[in-house]
Design a protein around this nucleic acid. Structure first.
Length: 111
DNA sequence: ATTCTGACGTGGG
DNA sequence: CCCCACGCCAGAA
């Protein structure tokens, strides 16, 4: 199968998402920037949407730059994303991650 | 081909 | 801090 794997932007996004440590979160823009497509932050979100119900992709650890769970609506149920984050020790109030700067994980700096 | 939308980000007020 | 406008790229109608 000569299907190009590394050229798949989606798979690359999933790959970075998998690297997000437990109890940490990052932003779409940071992932996009790490992949060399800083201007394609929206595509990262689009990739997550296409990821469907992949459990190997912790999409709940990816939020926007403000630390708001903008994509919680796309998860099953209404507060599944918040529930997953809180289960990892991340405090979420009104779709806003508390102490966002502390739990934030930047692939550019950490990787 | 054109238009709109979107799990975004940045900049200005 | 909030609100607004623009840019960006891929996919759907």
């Amino acid at each position: 199968m000569g299907v190009k794997n590394d050229d798949n932007f989606f798979d690359r996004v999933y790959d970075v998402a998998r690297l997000i440590p437990y109890g940490r979160v990052t932003s779409y823009g940071s992932i996009a920037k790490y992949l060399g497509a800083a201007r394609s932050a929206r595509m990262v979100g689009w990739a997550m949407n296409a990821c469907g119900g992949r459990e190997d992709v912790p999409a709940h650890r990816v939020v926007n730059r403000k630390g708001i769970l903008t994509g919680k609506h796309h998860f099953q149920g209404t507060n599944l994303m918040q529930q997953l984050l809180e289960s990892e020790g991340i405090e979420v109030i009104e779709n806003q991650i508390q102490d966002f700067d502390e739990v934030f994980w930047d692939p550019m700096k950490e990787l």
